[in-house]
C-alpha cells in the first residue's frame, strides 16, 4: 500500500525568458513502513524532489499523492495541514527555532496537534535522544550533534506517518553522524514510520530498503539497499 506516489512529476524554474527543468518526468512510489534513500550528485534535483514529495513546493507537471491526498490539488495552507498531521522533517542544518528552548522546539508540533500532554511527551522524546539535561537550553547553547538530536525528537514528536530527512548527518562529524543515523533508524523501526532520506553518503543510503538514484533531474535506476 503506497503512502507516497509520485507520477510524471516535472519541475521547471523560469527566469526571464529562460526556463530550467530541474526534474523531468519522475515516477516512483513508497510503501508505508518502507525506508528509501534518494542519492545523486550535487544539482541533480534530490532536494527539489524531497521538497515536492513533502508538499513544501508544488510540481510544474504531474501528481504527488501523499497519504491519499493529491498535493497538487491543495493550496499552501492545506498542504501545511497535511504536513502538520502526517509528516516529520530532519534538516541538514537542524532548523531549530533560535528563540525557543530545546523542550519548546519539540513541543511545537505537539501543540499544533492540540495535544494536552505536549510538555510531558516532548520531555520523554528528549530523554529518548539523551538530552534530558539540556531541555531548557537554547539552540545556540547546544553542539551540532545535540541540535540534530533535538531536531530528531521534534520530527518524531507528532508520530508522523512519513519522515523526510535532508542530509541529516551532512553537518556532523563521523562519530556524531553515526550516532544520529542509529537514532533515526532506531526510532523509525520502533514507531513504524516511513522514511525518505536524501543523502550523498552511500553508506547511509545502504541502510534503507531501497535507493533511488537521480541524475540531471531524471531517475536513473532504483536498487535495493
Amino acid at each position: 500500500m503506497a503512502i507516497l506516489q509520485v507520477t510524471k512529476v516535472s519541475k521547471t524554474y523560469k527566469s526571464g525568458n529562460r526556463s530550467l527543468t530541474v526534474l523531468d518526468d519522475v515516477n516512483f512510489s513508497v510503501d508505508a513502513g518502507e525506508s528509501i534513500a534518494i542519492v545523486g550528485p550535487s544539482g541533480s534535483g534530490k532536494t527539489t524532489l524531497l521538497g515536492l514529495c513533502a508538499g513544501l513546493d508544488a510540481a510544474s507537471l504531474g501528481s504527488v499523492m501523499l497519504v491519499d491526498k493529491a498535493l497538487e490539488k491543495l493550496n499552501e495552507d492545506e498542504r501545511a495541514e497535511v504536513r502538520s498531521q502526517n509528516i516529520g522533517f530532519i534538516f541538514q542544518n537542524f532548523q531549530l527555532l533560535p528563540t525557543l528552548t530545546a523542550l519548546e522546539n519539540v513541543m511545537v508540533p505537539l501543540e499544533l496537534k492540540k495535544r494536552k500532554d505536549a510538555k510531558e511527551k516532548a520531555a520523554e522524546l528528549l530523554r529518548k535522544v539523551g538530552l534530558e539535561d539540556r531541555m531548557t537550553h537554547y539552540p545556540t547553547q547546544l553542539s551540532g550533534g545535540e541540535q540534530q538530536r533535538v531536531s530528531i525528537a521534534r520530527a518524531f514528536a507528532n508520530e508522523p506517518k512519513i519522515l523526510f530527512a535532508d542530509e541529516p548527518t551532512g553537518n556532523l562529524d563521523t562519530e556524531t553522524g553515526e550516532m544520529i543515523e542509529d537514532l533515526i533508524f532506531q526510532l523509525n523501526q520502533d514507531l513504524g514510520t516511513t522514511l525518505v532520506l536524501v543523502t550523498h553518503d552511500l553508506e547511509l543510503a545502504k541502510r534503507t530498503n531501497r535507493i533511488i538514484n537521480i541524475k540531471g533531474g531524471k531517475i536513473q535506476e532504483a536498487q535495493n539497499g
Binding site: 499552501e76 501545511a80 504536513r83 502538520s84 522533517f89 532548523q95 499544533l112
Partner: peptide, 15 residues
C-alpha cells in the same frame, strides 16, 4: 524568515 520557514514546514499556516 528562517524561523517562519521552519514553522511552515511544521504545518503552521501563513496567517
Amino acid at each position: 524568515l528562517a524561523s517562519v520557514a521552519v514553522l511552515r514546514c511544521l504545518g503552521v499556516s501563513s496567517w
